[in-house]
Amino acid sequence: MEIDQSFLNLAWYLAAGAGLLLFLVIALWIFRGFMTSGGALMLKGRNKRLGVVDQAAIDGRRRLVLIRRDGVEHLVMTGGPIDIVIETGIGANGPHPYKDIERAPSSPLDDERIRIAEAQTGRS
């Protein structure tokens, strides 16, 4: 029983095509993994400088996003008419950027201005 040469050629072309298809599928799978992980698949040893620490939905459109860049965190609100930086420099090693701003008292009774006003009016 002799096999026709054209059948062998057809089998060879089908096997080569299946191999090429398998190679393309594997290459696309690796490329997709590389692109979705931000290149972390190929660059495992590299320190990441930028990342999203946490996020929370405010309503259907707006989100609060806590972003870390070089060890400093920034709170950003996105999704509205404009994106707003709410607070920056969270967790910085240096002095706190808002340390000179007067903090609100924890209760109205702790506010020295109210006690001064009470002393001037004679109320206790």
Score class of each variant (00 low, 15 high):
Gly51Val: 01
Asn47Cys: 01
Leu43Pro: 03
Asp54Val: 00
Trp29Ala: 12
Met42Arg: 14
Ile30Cys: 02
Ile58Val: 13
Gly33Asn: 06
Asn47Trp: 04
Gly38Cys: 06
Ile26Arg: 05
Arg46His: 12
Leu43Tyr: 08
Leu41Gly: 08
Gly51Thr: 01
Met35Cys: 11
Ala27His: 03
Phe34His: 11
Asp59Leu: 01
Arg32Ala: 13
Val53Gly: 04
Ile26Ser: 02
Gly45Ala: 15
Val52Asp: 01
Gly51Asp: 02
Ala40Cys: 04
Ala57Ser: 12
Arg46Val: 12
Ser37Val: 03
Ile30Gln: 11
Gln55Asn: 02
Gly38Lys: 11
Leu28Ser: 10
Gly45Asp: 15
Phe34Gln: 13
Asp54Leu: 02
Leu43Ser: 15
Leu50Tyr: 08
Val52Ser: 09
Ile58Glu: 02
Asn47Gly: 15
Val52His: 02
Ala27Lys: 10
Ala57Met: 03
Val52Leu: 07
Gly38Asn: 08
Gly39Arg: 09
Val53Lys: 06
Gln55Gly: 06
Ile26Thr: 07
Lys48Gly: 13
Gly33Ser: 01
Ala56Thr: 05
Leu50Met: 07
Arg32Glu: 08
Leu50Ser: 07
Asp59Gln: 00
Leu41Ala: 07
Trp29Arg: 07
Asp59Phe: 00
Ile30Leu: 12
Phe31His: 08
Asp59Ala: 00
Val52Tyr: 02
Lys44Met: 10
Leu50Thr: 09
Phe34Asn: 10
Thr36Cys: 04
Ile26Ala: 10
Ile26Val: 13
Lys48Ile: 12
Ala27Ser: 10
Val53Trp: 01
Gly33Met: 03
Val53Arg: 09
Lys48Pro: 03
Asp59Lys: 00
Asp54Lys: 08
Thr36Leu: 15
Arg49Ser: 13
Arg49Met: 09
Met35Arg: 15
Ile58Gly: 05
Asp59Arg: 00
Leu28Cys: 11
Ile58Asn: 00
Lys48Tyr: 01
Ser37Arg: 09
Ile30Lys: 07
Ile58Cys: 01
Arg49Val: 12
Phe31Ala: 12
Val52Cys: 05
Gly33Tyr: 01
Gln55Asp: 06
Asp54Gln: 09
Met35Tyr: 14
Leu28Glu: 05
Arg32Met: 11
Ala57Pro: 02
Leu50Ala: 09
Gly39His: 04
Thr36Phe: 10
Met42Lys: 11
Ser37Asn: 14
Thr36Glu: 13
Leu41Val: 14
Met35Ile: 14
Lys48Ser: 09
Ala27Thr: 07
Ala40Tyr: 12
Gly51Ile: 00
Leu50Phe: 14
Gly33Phe: 01
Gly45Cys: 07
Asp54Cys: 03
Trp29Lys: 09
Leu28Pro: 00
Leu41Pro: 00
Gly45Lys: 14
Gly38Val: 13
Gly33Gln: 02
Asp59Met: 01
